[in-house]
Design a protein around this nucleic acid. Sequence first.
DNA 1: TGTTGATTTGACCATCTGGTCAAGATAAGC
DNA 2: GCTTATCTTGACCAGATGGTCAAATCAACA
Lengths: 207, 207
Amino acid sequence: MKDDQPNPRPQTRIQQRNRQTILEAALEVFSAYGFRGATLDQIAAEAGLSKPNLLYYFASKEAIHLELLSGLMDTWLDPLRAMNPDGEPTAEILAYVRRKLEISRDFPRESRLFANEILQGAPRMQPALEGDLKSLVDEKCALIRGWSDAGRIAQIDPYHLIFSIWALTQHYADFDVQVRAVLGPGHDPFAEADRFVETLYQRLLKT
Amino acid sequence: MKDDQPNPRPQTRIQQRNRQTILEAALEVFSAYGFRGATLDQIAAEAGLSKPNLLYYFASKEAIHLELLSGLMDTWLDPLRAMNPDGEPTAEILAYVRRKLEISRDFPRESRLFANEILQGAPRMQPALEGDLKSLVDEKCALIRGWSDAGRIAQIDPYHLIFSIWALTQHYADFDVQVRAVLGPGHDPFAEADRFVETLYQRLLKT
DNA sequence: TGTTGATTTGACCATCTGGTCAAGATAAGC
DNA sequence: GCTTATCTTGACCAGATGGTCAAATCAACA
């Protein structure tokens, strides 16, 4: 996201590789144990580096965590940004749902990291929530309201419609153990979820 | 749940009161910071007791946490247990949704404690999930499937129907900060959610 | 009131944890 | 190969944290 130019910081190949390795390891550990539950030793072990070496690449434990979180917000917002005002309303909303569910399936650790942060009151993300997130949601909700006012989808509160999409799709990543425990073996929760949410939102939005 | 008889352990009034005070304080702290993020000193301060005194009433930090979790499961299952096979299907399901949302509104700390535990892989609850929870859900899903096979509600996967109820209702407790950040001031998320989920499930279940 | 058992706590301990530092190993340019 | 800048680490530190313990305080009851 930053340091794309060769100037500001040299960013040798070793630096690039090791910072990446560390972030990957930190994601694994933070998403499983939360910020305070994770230790630098765990992350170092996961990354195959020594603890002082971690701190050569990142100023502190908090700095690693922040870097992960800031990288997250964009991944989070992109699918919603992609909702096209000129598309067919139901198709656009369903595409958003499907895309969000794919993200839960493919990036469950990121989803849990995010959930951990919000659960604990979002101490490091509140500004982003009230800023970028809110304004994007406001914009898309205006769009959705336009669609329902024009009778192209059923009348529904657009904000809570979006909340429901977040809740449903993230549930399969964040509560994975519970879902699997209840379904028992021999199930593909995400495949089933895909069919379920499609049905749900089609019935909800049908005029 | 245990020690209802006066015999096994005396349980003086002081003991009863202090154990309760400690559990209340621990709920506050654990739900806000997670198990590892919470400290005995924090809990002691919140309870207005000294740390050694906590450990006079509970064997360890873990013991406090376990007691909270075990108390939780029942509160969690009760609304689902209350689903009446002889009632009107849509009304029964909507009542369940409403009851679950009330719990999110009235016991958000319990909801977050639970979410924290599941998020981190449910290390201390997996047996309960695969046991009591699964069998109750299996039972109620059979019931719901009966309803939809009889044409009394629309065809829908009962397991994912229940997951959707959990996801939606708990979202308002667990992601409270996010919901409020997006809605902005002047909203009552739970009141709005109540209307939203009612609409959603009515449209989903209508034959 | 004296005695006994329950309750409370200050002082303490071992371990863990985030972080530092100086010295050594390695890679890169000349 | 030599020099310089980058990278790596063993040893260490200060503070936090879960937990212990003996001694002190309190409550109840004979």
